[in-house]
Design a protein around this nucleic acid. Sequence first.
DNA 1: TTGAAAGCGCTAACAC
DNA 2: GTGTTAGCGCTTTCAA
Lengths: 354, 354
Amino acid sequence: MRSEDIAKLAGVSRSTVSRVINNYSNVPEKTREKVMKIVEEYHYEPNTSARILAGKSTNTIGLFVISTTEKHNPNRIYQNNYFAPFVDALVDTANAMGYYVLIHTIYSEDDFIKVKQAFQQKRIDGGIIVGTENNMAMARVIADLEVPFVLIDYDIAELLENRLDRNNLAVINSKDYEGAAKAVEHLISLGHRDIAFISGRQNTYSGKQRYQAYMTTMQDHGLKVIEKHVLSGDFLRAKAEQEVKKMLLCDAATWPSAIFSANDEMALGAMDACKGLGVLIPEQLSLIGFDDIPVAAQLNPNLSSVSLPIYEMSQKAALILVEMCEKGSASFSTISFPTQLMIRETTRELNASL
Amino acid sequence: MRSEDIAKLAGVSRSTVSRVINNYSNVPEKTREKVMKIVEEYHYEPNTSARILAGKSTNTIGLFVISTTEKHNPNRIYQNNYFAPFVDALVDTANAMGYYVLIHTIYSEDDFIKVKQAFQQKRIDGGIIVGTENNMAMARVIADLEVPFVLIDYDIAELLENRLDRNNLAVINSKDYEGAAKAVEHLISLGHRDIAFISGRQNTYSGKQRYQAYMTTMQDHGLKVIEKHVLSGDFLRAKAEQEVKKMLLCDAATWPSAIFSANDEMALGAMDACKGLGVLIPEQLSLIGFDDIPVAAQLNPNLSSVSLPIYEMSQKAALILVEMCEKGSASFSTISFPTQLMIRETTRELNASL
DNA sequence: TTGAAAGCGCTAACAC
DNA sequence: GTGTTAGCGCTTTCAA
């Protein structure tokens, strides 16, 4: 069924059918009804390719999940607790606005060409980049495309430095610095002074922010950061377990009284290490993570953490993107979502009576 | 940059460019190189819409997530432990074969038209349905489309009954019956005779299979199913907690010695109920779930469960679908993946000395 | 208010 | 081997 068939059946021309389909104002109600009746009767659906070729938009947005380090990880990005709710809200919000979502995973710099291709092939109107790297080279490629794009978890300052505050670009972040500072301050308020830190990957924006927040907050409160208590992690469980174990194998007198882990995954690793060595949480060691993954509230003891409004962030990403696609609102914008401290059972007052 | 521009620069015609792009055999190596040089130099990408309009396939598959009951659930499908790894493997596998994935959520029967539209609008070559309902009406609509489609977790017998074993259709299941039987038999082998069951939604294939497996296995072993010990659940945590609590509020002498829960989510609810009433697992009550969600192995005590090869199922779905799209291999096929019993800490021998 | 006709960029049958 | 040309189905100027 083509528009021409509909036209014939309705006794009008293809142009009129097109006008009706596209809700043009200059077609009388009577003609519109006549055409719509046939359209509905035959369940006519215009051919998307033909429409796009004739200059219409695709009504499709691309979601590109950058995951250059995780291809061979057991801890795949789709299974991680950031991506699942993210895609949920994104697809939902986009669908509700009449948009389709094209999803693609990027595992290497070479794969990155897929983003460009999706545009050049006219498959999508705009795109969203969510991933773990704060990669300025990629951002530049995106910016040079000069199409609507939303960047998630990118360093705004660095973007500005590189003059990438281009139109059609939006950045959506969470306030990781603030969240991490709250976590450290929570520990300090409980009387902890020797607080260890398990860092995340430093090539990510959130990894850096959480690290800096830890360092600065400690300093601001006049607390000494003990070099051996700053453990180098990679956001994954296994390495964190090793590092914590190594630290706890030293003389117990040198142990920190609390650990702030840059994410929950690594906090689980810390718990593994403690369990293995018979160290009690929170009796001997307080522990707080970041991300507030669903497991956090289900563990025994429940893990204290900092939660991120991922769902809202993703929803906002879809909204902003569609707006940019439709209105061509050509301004650079950024938005940073607040975090929330979730105090549970793994953090307690230093030397609390048992 | 259009094919015509490339043609001019390379000193050939548009047809030749097209032949090179589409890897036709009847173009000499020399010409091919000449054209490719220009193509690469200018990063030329053919316009997808034009190609599709001219009769090429879209190289895109649709993933439709049916979720008619879960729109307002806190336990959204994208966050559930079935969907996340499913989309992971699917996108990965499809991308690796050069396919894009268009994703759409269907929240109601009305939304279902989106599946049809995606095809009629020529957005996708084939589709995959994953969801929670074993809905024959939907299956019929799909079958009538006569395009490549993969159905996940559908009742093959019912499909056959309805003569929906059409070409271009494939069904991918897990052996839920077998898995559930293994779970019940495991409890029986531990000496349990009064085994309670928390059922899942009966409008799902897996819900039904797990229920039937429980009933039949009990019967096969000459064990009596006590009506009050067959709890009616909905696959969600809250209701399961209520039901288990209600059961445990009766005289302790009437308690079952073990519970088989149709999924882990509800097993968590059962654990909540026990915790609330001070009932010890596994000392007083053995418990086994289904799905082997990641949390299962992280709880204290670790939850025994039955694991499903979701990743492999999804991978297979992508492979079969692409094969159907490309080869037009027009046969009805089904494949059922085996399950695996994961014995952990929540199941123990009846009256084991403590 | 409506229709005719010229594209949009590509593929493929046909002719050379 | 390679070029010419006629579509694919739609939108949108332009004219009437």
